[in-house]
Design a protein around this nucleic acid. Sequence first.
DNA 1: TGATTTACTACACGCCGTTCAAAGTCAGCA
DNA 2: TGCTGACTTTGAACGGCGTGTAGTAAATCA
Lengths: 231, 231
Amino acid sequence: MSRRERLRAQTSAEIKAIALKLMGDGGPDAISLRAIAREMGMTAGAIYSYFPTRDDLITALVGDVYTAAVEAAESARDAVPDSDTGGRVLAWAQAMREWALANPEGFRLIYGDPVPGYRPPGDGPGREAELRACSGLIGLVAEAWPTARTLQPEGRDYDWAGFDAGLAAHVREDFPGLPPAAVALTLRVWGRMHGLVALEIYGHLSGLIHDPGAVYRDEMHDLIASLGLNA
Amino acid sequence: MSRRERLRAQTSAEIKAIALKLMGDGGPDAISLRAIAREMGMTAGAIYSYFPTRDDLITALVGDVYTAAVEAAESARDAVPDSDTGGRVLAWAQAMREWALANPEGFRLIYGDPVPGYRPPGDGPGREAELRACSGLIGLVAEAWPTARTLQPEGRDYDWAGFDAGLAAHVREDFPGLPPAAVALTLRVWGRMHGLVALEIYGHLSGLIHDPGAVYRDEMHDLIASLGLNA
DNA sequence: TGATTTACTACACGCCGTTCAAAGTCAGCA
DNA sequence: TGCTGACTTTGAACGGCGTGTAGTAAATCA
């Protein structure tokens, strides 16, 4: 790596770091190229040497932030012994909520409109982190599948063709024998973990109940029970 | 109502109508005072006679849009006979999802950051619609409470003090005898209905599964079953 | 050394929300 | 009828935004 490349990587990292700091201070809207440049003693135009457009910077940030969130969830899960699947699910869920509460701007960046009009790209580090999160959840559901399968609706039969081809290939490689219905169940689990947190982060619970965490805890315990586990 | 007041109300309504149209065309970010004024053949400054700031206009819009969504859910629910509580819950859930898919910008306006930095006020028509939605859901949970209560976690005891005073008073008047735990359960139901729809609207499911509706349907059937009902 | 690639500045463009003085409009009263 | 006072609208301005483009200086390479 030449001196040039090193400097370039360093500046690029500094841009992202400052963007995250600005986001932490003043929300996702505070991420303006001009503000970043101001903080770095540069001009706004200079950033275009590193990120062709503002959305590309956002995309890079989403990747970093999402990766951090997934790593928090993974390490919380791994702190619970393999035998306690219910505890691992709960740890994942609680870690996700706590991360969201600690980084509400990050949550908005990933799960909301970071900037109105911004559309996440179909690939890149953000997509990778999303697949990693999905994979982590599928792993948990796979652990629970033997007990959970009796709860599946019998009428519907899922088919691998109904899923994204890349995801399907991934799952079939990592979890051989796991049926597509388990992936569908994973999405439901994801939705269930996501719903209350999204409502809370966007302020829809604060005016109704004083301790949303208790409700979330109950919901997660019910989820775990519905998977045939106990926490 | 004097001629002046009539004109004023008319112009105010036109501003909101155009804002909704712009939102439908180009997302929430397309709601700019200048664009609205342009469309109306006015100047941007003139709008300040009607809405003191852009956020106040947004707040008014949120109220309108939220009310429309709630009315859609209510009428879907009321199209199912009282005796079929499970069907009423399902109708509400499906109506909410379908409304969100038909009005993604509206969904973002209510449940996301319409504009980065915008914070919904503690009262006003938006809050009213939110309470109305909450009330509708509480009604459904109240219908299901006799069968659902066995599913409540026994360790935790909710207290009216844990809830917003206004909400608590409202519930105790409309649903006498309903315990606070039922309200907590309602929030969980809300979160469960919200989660998958939020993920879908913000594009997190489209890259994973082709028919998110099927997953949502399964999830709602499971929710209804967990309430001790059948759909 | 000279040629080329790269990083950056400076400036321009058109968008935005917001403010404000001045001009226009109109109901109600003398 | 004419006048007054309240309301509405204009038009210009301010500062901020993302985005391009032209030019400059430095680092790199042959």
